[in-house]
């Protein structure tokens, strides 16, 4: 193990990790918004929109992110849509994550009994208020564990970004292997940096899961 080499290339990996986290997080935030919207549409059974969201969910859940990114990055410019690698990565994560988030929120929404909505309505809230103040807060806390699992899953999926020439961790590692033939060192750093990103989130996830059990009613 050439520690000098590792030390020299630390900033490179740091920058790559930052890029992974930045694009990943932006994509995840979009995915959460998209997922929430889809979940509410499906929960409220809004006609037409509901069919569109079901179609979207099936398509996004049954295709790999890599293929989605290839289509976004290499396919779309051919019909005149200008694309940027960073935006593509973000859009890809949002497109893939939206469906997973939506399923998570939907199962959260379904776990709140309809009695609660009915009581809220009979107390004089309108549907919007009942959703916002009664159902959503509970549904969100029920779905926290699955939600954290989704975030980890999506951050792991960002490892395919190198295919659309984003200089992420995979790209940097592959580059260093190609340039200097320091395979062991580069792979070691790759693993360490992914652990640095993913381990805290995984630990936070199990912590939140334990905390959120208090939110349960009547256990």
């Amino acid at each position: 193990m050439d520690w000098n080499f590792i030390y020299r290339n630390l900033p490179l990996f740091g920058k790559a990790a930052l890029l992974t986290v930045k694009i990943g997080m932006a994509g995840i935030i979009l995915a959460i918004l998209l997922g929430l919207i889809c979940a509410v549409i499906r929960h409220l059974r809004i006609p037409v929109l509901r069919e569109i969201t079901s179609f979207y969910i099936e398509v996004s859940r049954n295709t790999p992110l890599l293929v989605q990114l290839f289509f976004l990055y290499y396919g779309l410019p051919k019909i005149g849509v200008p694309t940027d690698a960073g935006i593509c990565g973000m859009a890809g994560i949002a497109f893939l994550g939206g469906s997973y988030m939506s399923e998570t929120f939907r199962s959260g929404l379904e776990s709140i009994e309809s009695v609660q909505t009915e009581s809220a309505l009979s107390l004089g809230m309108n549907r919007f208020e009942a959703m916002c103040y009664v159902v959503l807060p509970q549904a969100v806390s029920v779905s926290v564990p699955a939600f954290m699992a989704n975030i980890i899953f999506l951050l792991k999926e960002t490892s395919v970004f190198s295919a659309i020439s984003l200089m992420d961790l995979m790209f940097t590692a592959k580059d260093l292997i190609g340039l200097y033939y320091k395979t062991t060192e580069s792979l070691f750093m790759l693993v360490v940096f992914y652990l640095l990103i993913l381990l805290p989130i995984s630990l936070l996830g199990s912590l939140l899961e334990r905390r959120m059990r208090y939110a349960g009613f009547g256990d």
Binding site: I152, K156, E157, T158, S159, V160, M170, A173, K174, I177, T183, T184, L187, L190, V191, Y194, L195, L198, L199, S202
Partner: peptide, 19 residues
Amino acid sequence: RIMPQMVLLFLFYFGTTRA
């Protein structure tokens, strides 16, 4: 489970062959 599958592929394809 915490490592992206891509990292695992790299570890085996480039790492173990070298090591």
